[in-house]
Design a protein around this nucleic acid. Structure first.
Lengths: 203, 203, 203, 203
DNA sequence: TATGAATGAGCTTTCATTCAT
DNA sequence: AATGAATGAAAGCTCATTCAT
């Protein structure tokens, strides 16, 4: 009698366990054997759940999406003021720990794979979606700020939001390779201060 | 007597020709044979100029550095006003064409390789140096702005400069995978407008 | 469940089949593909059983050891008189056939490899061990001869045994490259006669 | 005007300088570049004096022959008594220093190459010739001993001489891989003592 | 003559994937 | 369903040899 397993659950289980490996060694350098070991199954078993090595990445990218959505959602739940919310979002986005670094690394590799081979559009779907959602969120915050007279009315909310959301990744990337020189907390604080200067908007 | 060649020149020649390949396929997927073909020499010849495949990357990263330094230098030469200079720098940094994309891709891969294996610190040396130089530049611009009474004196120039310079990469990265949705020109313009407005000192 | 194989058995199987190849072509000239072909498996399969090409040699050297031990052991089992035993040992040591030649060739190459690179001490471990065991054996035979008044009492058994055992290899080596000129049977017989001259010891 | 060089002299010059290299690393592991470096010429120059890498070995083997002939000749010049001469020859043959080891190693590799590929008969020509000459020499010594009543007349001089001469190489080979355990001086002395005692005629 | 730049055949080794058990 | 033994394509790298200078 066949063992009863939830196929989909097993896929995300394996994918989730692969993330740390992928972050540490990169996709190419991570072998199927590595992934099987990390998942505690045999090498052949992996092929019951994924047709190819690349398919694992696909599922990994979904896992990343849920992971990040959860983390951002939690951060924004209980704040009302739009500008406070924006500050909280930035703080959250810039809060880097080991898990975040792992996600960021894999996510960068997905970006690269996509850039190298446009046939794998799926890989960056999650990045694009995340970026889109966050941009909408920030844009709404800015609009809310405008409505409450707390933000300059001639700002193009969409464009600025896009810039802001995009900028996070640049800061994290640089921080990750030069932790000694870059004080990300200070940079974040200064940026928030600059962004939300009281007295804004100008006349 | 054997053919006389300039060893160093040949190295950068080959490295330069490899950049497009690396951008298109990635380091791992680019074979020595590919690079040899691109350089129009035999596979073995590559090993006269580079001891290992990785050494090619090292030289490539230097070439990237010169390439970028040149492009930024040119952009800033003839502008006097510090804030105009800052705007010009941002415009330049955000000016993406095929060459810039290639450089950005390779540079991202160098970032990844470094993150995966810290033993190749050299690979990100150029990234760190570039980031450091640009941050100093922008920081000086902000300070100059302060001195001329054109910029808010409370700003932490270093921290804000670090943010700005880092942000470029984030924006470019997102633009590159979602060109249809992101109008980088508009985003850049809006950001510059926002920056100069916010930076201006309060009355 | 995967095919069940006895890993250790497969290793010696492959090693054993490799011996003839190594004897015929030498270690360097024998490719992994050759060994795989001889073993009737794919090239990759070899690497399931050996981490490197050199590891094959290691196992080969062990196989040689067992091979030789067996052959000597059998020769000495049923002889009681120590001097007769010594004669039998010499006859056995000098009994050269194709298998012995193969072993001798590989064993010479192991010697060379060790001399070239002392880091592979393991390779000659079997040679040293075999030499040591045989020397002890012969030394005991001489001592037994002494005790029975059949051998000169002031002989240094150890030293002489060492010489005798070592000399075998020299004789075989010369025989193997000049079979037409060297009548190994006659040389062996004459040497045994000389060694065991009746009437010994002298007064 | 072409530089005047003595072609044959250059060949032996290069070959002579290659011996130490070959002894240290082995023929395969010694590159043409290594040999060129050791000879202080360019890699291409080697090919003015040797058609192939193997041809270098051929000349090396001749150099070895002269080297050895010279060393044996000198040792035997001034001794009259045949048995003393035999003892002196054995002492000389067993006198191992760095040069002798190098020669022995290369000579062993020549042996191996010949065994692997009988088409290179030339390589062992020197070994065979040396062995033949020495055997004749020793055989003559034994005969001379017989004639003077100092050696057992039943001995087959040829066969025993062949054994003796062959045995040297076996002893040296074992000594070289187990110098700590084997006291070659003692072994040699004991063997000479044994030999001369046994060889002496019965009353 | 002397040189070393250029070459590509050929090697070891890795690893995604298949498949018999 | 689960496994790991088997496989061979593919890649980096070495080096004897050639040849233009």
């Amino acid at each position: 009698m066949p063992k009863i397993v939830n196929h989909e659950k097993m896929r995300s289980e394996i994918a989730r366990k692969a993330i740390a490996l992928l972050a540490k060694k990169g996709f190419q350098a991570t072998t199927i054997q590595d992934i099987a070991n990390a998942a505690g199954v045999g090498k052949g078993t992996i092929y019951h759940y994924f047709r190819t090595k690349e398919e694992i990445l696909l599922v990994v990218s979904n896992e990343l999406f849920y992971e990040m959505e959860r983390s951002f959602g939690a951060a924004l739940l209980r704040i009302d003021d739009p500008l406070d919310k924006m500050a909280a979002l930035i703080e959250e986005a810039m809060h880097v720990n080991e898990d975040v670094e792992n996600i960021f690394i894999v996510y960068t590799e997905l970006w690269l794979i996509n850039v190298h081979s446009h046939k794998y559009q799926d890989f960056v779907g999650v990045i694009k979606k995340m970026h889109h959602d966050l941009t909408a969120l920030v844009s709404n915050m800015i609009d809310a700020g405008k409505n409450r007279g707390r933000w300059d009315r001639d700002t193009d909310s969409q464009a600025l939001a896009c810039y802001l959301v995009s900028s996070f990744d640049g800061v994290i990337a640089h921080y990750m390779i030069d932790k000694e020189k870059i004080d990300i907390k200070k940079v974040t604080k200064e940026f928030i201060r600059f962004l939300l200067q009281r007295g804004a908007p100008r006349k």
